[in-house]
Lab assay of single mutants.
Amino acid sequence: KYSDMIVAAIQAEKNRAGSSRQSIQKYIKSHYKVGENADSQIKLSIKRLVTTGVLKQTKGVGASGSFRLA
């Protein structure tokens, strides 16, 4: 599940300011076997996790910027 992968990526990075979408994508692609549409799936999952309150956006708008666990 992409949401689990995103949470794992943010936990692994341990950046106080949060993790960027690009760094999350890079982590997921190197640690998991994902399909061609992974980028758009990650983007959608990040937006969903922010609206449900699992992630907090520290910089930027939408799916860009930095995110950390709430």
Results as ranks from 00 to 15, higher is better:
70 A>R: 06
7 V>G: 01
19 S>M: 11
61 V>R: 14
9 A>N: 02
2 Y>E: 01
44 L>T: 08
30 S>Y: 07
12 A>W: 07
70 A>G: 06
66 S>P: 07
42 I>H: 01
11 Q>M: 14
4 D>Y: 13
52 T>W: 08
6 I>Q: 00
41 Q>L: 14
63 A>M: 11
2 Y>I: 10
1 K>D: 13
25 Q>W: 10
65 G>S: 14
43 K>M: 14
8 A>K: 06
18 G>R: 02
44 L>P: 01
24 I>E: 00
49 L>S: 00
27 Y>F: 08
19 S>Y: 02
34 V>R: 00
52 T>H: 07
43 K>N: 15
31 H>K: 05
41 Q>I: 12
37 N>C: 08
32 Y>G: 02
39 D>Q: 06
42 I>S: 01
44 L>N: 09
4 D>M: 11
57 Q>G: 04
30 S>V: 08
29 K>G: 03
70 A>P: 04
43 K>R: 12
42 I>Y: 02
14 K>D: 10
63 A>W: 09
13 E>N: 12
16 R>S: 14
47 K>H: 10
5 M>I: 02
61 V>T: 10
26 K>M: 10
6 I>E: 01
37 N>A: 06
44 L>R: 15
12 A>T: 04
24 I>M: 02
58 T>N: 07
53 G>T: 00
66 S>V: 13
46 I>D: 00
47 K>C: 14
10 I>N: 01
25 Q>A: 14
27 Y>E: 01
50 V>F: 03
17 A>G: 13
53 G>L: 03
23 S>R: 06
39 D>K: 07
69 L>S: 03
52 T>C: 15
22 Q>E: 13
35 G>M: 05
15 N>S: 10
41 Q>A: 11
59 K>W: 10
21 R>L: 15
1 K>S: 14
14 K>N: 14
68 R>L: 12
32 Y>E: 00
30 S>C: 13
44 L>E: 12
37 N>V: 05
26 K>N: 12
62 G>P: 04
39 D>Y: 10
55 L>K: 01
39 D>A: 09
42 I>W: 03
40 S>P: 05
63 A>C: 14
22 Q>A: 12
11 Q>F: 08
45 S>H: 14
64 S>L: 13
39 D>L: 07
27 Y>R: 01
62 G>A: 06
25 Q>G: 08
10 I>S: 04
4 D>L: 11
25 Q>V: 15
53 G>H: 04
47 K>E: 13
64 S>M: 11
12 A>G: 04
2 Y>D: 02
20 S>M: 03
42 I>E: 00
40 S>L: 13
23 S>D: 10
63 A>S: 12
9 A>W: 02
41 Q>R: 12
42 I>V: 05
12 A>V: 04
19 S>K: 04
26 K>T: 09
53 G>C: 06
47 K>T: 08
51 T>H: 12
1 K>Q: 09
53 G>K: 05
64 S>P: 09
56 K>R: 11
56 K>C: 15
37 N>Q: 06
16 R>H: 11
62 G>Q: 05
62 G>H: 07
45 S>L: 09
14 K>S: 11
26 K>E: 13
7 V>N: 00
22 Q>N: 09
15 N>G: 09
8 A>I: 06
50 V>Y: 02
67 F>S: 02
38 A>L: 11
69 L>Y: 06
54 V>L: 05
